[in-house]
């Protein structure tokens, strides 16, 4: 079995497929243990895990907290309100503080692309990127992949449509890197104003017509559209967006009959997704995504802790 070779998990771009598979396999075993009620482990006993969130995110923080506690780590949550952060210097001040506190594992969420990578250069802890700006959100893509693999039995040769605000989505970027590495066909679907420049160079197909983009897809992955995007003029209104790019039953009919629907949450019902679809247990796997999130984060923390112990 290959051993994840890095000290940190900052991005999925460039991560070799065997290591992705390793993380997914380990996460799957944690998922089974969690379901079996055997939730307490001690692989992180004696280690300190700090959740350092410069951006609000109840669900991701809670998921990491639960993962850390189930593995026996001492978990501390630090929320740094962005208004009090005097840009980046505080970031490096924070790094020296964390080093002084002998942190072993650091989970970082930040509104700026590259901020966890900057911290990783300065801290002794193993760093997990829990979402940085519009760059990457590796554990989200891993939990999405695990959910797909459990539902479809494999990731090979699936057609996956990632829909909506791809431009501002770190979830989309991490998913594109992971899914392409695992031999999926990846499409991005959205209005041209929300599709990043030259995204096709990453290896995806671009669609501006949602029905064409969903045709024969195995997986429909919806992204959150933030309200500010409408204020910025990238889309004129929520109702227009829903009409052309919101997932409803009529559009979903173009995907395969057994296509699953995913969303990283939190959802804007009636903007990017119709409640009838989001709540349809035969199509929506949104609940399972959350469940797999804890298992994936347990796997990531486990692997990084092993590397941390080996290095110290």
């Amino acid at each position: 079995m290959p051993l994840y070779p890095h000290r940190h998990l900052l991005a999925l771009q460039g991560l070799e497929p065997p290591y992705i598979a390793e993380l997914l396999d380990l996460a799957e075993s944690y998922a089974l243990l969690n379901r079996g009620g055997k939730t307490q482990r001690d692989v992180l006993r004696g280690l300190t895990l700090i959740n350092l969130f410069f951006e609000d995110s109840t669900r991701t923080r809670t998921s990491f907290e639960l993962a850390g506690k189930r593995l026996g780590a001492d978990v501390i949550n630090m929320s740094v309100s962005t208004s009090s952060v005097n840009k980046g210097e505080t970031l490096l001040d924070t790094a020296s503080t964390l080093n002084a506190m002998k942190t072993d594992l650091l989970v970082v969420r930040h509104a700026q692309s590259g901020a966890p990578a900057l911290l990783a250069q300065k801290v002794d802890a193993g760093v997990v990127n829990a979402g940085d700006g519009t760059h990457e959100h590796p554990t989200q893509a891993l939990l999405d992949a695990l959910t797909i693999r459990r539902r479809k039995g494999t990731l090979e040769n699936l057609t996956i449509a990632i829909c909506g605000d791809v431009l501002h989505s770190r979830v989309a970027r991490s998913n594109i890197h992971l899914l392409l590495a695992m031999n999926c066909r990846v499409r991005v679907v959205g209005p041209p104003t929300l599709i990043p420049s030259e995204v096709e160079e990453l290896g995806v197909e671009v669609f501006h017509d949602m029905k064409a983009g969903l045709k024969d897809a195995d997986v429909v992955m919806m992204l959150r559209l933030q309200k500010e995007r409408m204020a910025g003029g990238l889309v004129p209104s929520a109702r227009e967006f829903f009409r052309f790019y919101g997932l409803d039953a009529a559009k979903l009919r173009h995907a395969k009959p057994d296509a699953i629907v995913m969303h990283p949450g939190p959802m804007n019902r009636g903007v990017e997704i119709d409640s009838a679809i989001a709540d349809d247990p035969t199509r929506s796997v949104i609940g399972e995504q959350v469940e797999m999130g804890v298992a994936v984060r347990m796997a990531v923390l486990d692997v990084l802790a092993q590397n941390q112990r080996r290095n110290s």
Partner: peptide, 14 residues
């Protein structure tokens, strides 16, 4: 603007 900025998730200009 382009592939590099898209990969890095950076605000970009053409």
């Amino acid at each position: 603007e382009g592939e590099m900025a898209t990969r890095m998730g950076l605000p970009s200009a053409p």
